[in-house]
């Protein structure tokens, strides 16, 4: 089924492109929502990513799974988006809270996916991006440093601050 859709996309058939978009919309948005400030921005990143997908669909190897290929494109697009708007944003650091989240599992278990996304979106773009790349995507600090043109130490520091900020947000909203 997916191969047929991709075949249609290669022929630039609009209905195939729409099918592919619909099928992976939620998956794509689940990624972009964590990198964006808002839903609108997330949709914008997703559409940018799908433009790349449709323009480069001929280079996709149909013998390999589609999702990782798409994920890689979406993450790269999100990083590009981060670079593009790097100077537009003002970094807002939350006050660091020293609580240990390990002791607050009962609070975490009651938080929904939407609330998680909302919390991540409250982080500054620099912290959020490092947090997503390290925690969710599984990149190493060295790789993140290369992708974001920052020092490895900065990546580690941003991750640490992101986690502390998240703890703070959880404390504030759910305790």
């Amino acid at each position: 089924m997916i191969k047929e859709i991709i075949k249609g996309c290669r022929k630039r058939r609009r209905e195939s492109q729409k099918k592919l978009y619909q099928r992976f919309y939620a998956y794509g948005m689940s990624i972009t929502l964590r990198y964006a400030d808002s839903r609108g921005e997330a949709a914008e990143i997703l559409n940018d990513a799908f433009m790349k997908v449709f323009n480069n669909i001929s280079s996709y190897d149909t013998d390999r799974p589609f999702k990782p290929w798409l994920r890689r494109i979406i993450v790269n697009t999100a990083i590009n988006h981060y670079h593009k708007h790097e100077n537009d944003r003002q970094q807002v650091d939350f006050e660091l809270v020293e609580h240990e989240m390990g002791q607050r599992q009962d609070i975490l278990s009651g938080i929904s996916y939407d609330e998680i996304v909302e919390m991540v979106q409250q982080l500054s773009p620099a912290y959020r991006t490092v947090f997503n790349l390290y925690v969710i995507e599984g990149f190493k600090h060295r790789e993140i440093a290369e992708m974001l043109n920052i020092a490895v130490g900065t990546s580690k520091s941003n991750l640490s601050k992101a986690k502390k900020n998240l703890q703070s947000i959880v404390e504030k909203n759910f305790s």
Binding site: Q22, Y25, A26, Y27, M29, S30, L33, R34, A43, M101, G102, Q105, L108, I111, Y113, I116, V120, F131, V135, I136, K163, L166, Q167
Partner: peptide, 20 residues
Amino acid sequence: SDPLEEFFREKSQEYDIEYH
């Protein structure tokens, strides 16, 4: 083993996003 990381990793898979 950071529980916060584990938590976010797991929760990020539980998406249910409406198509627009």
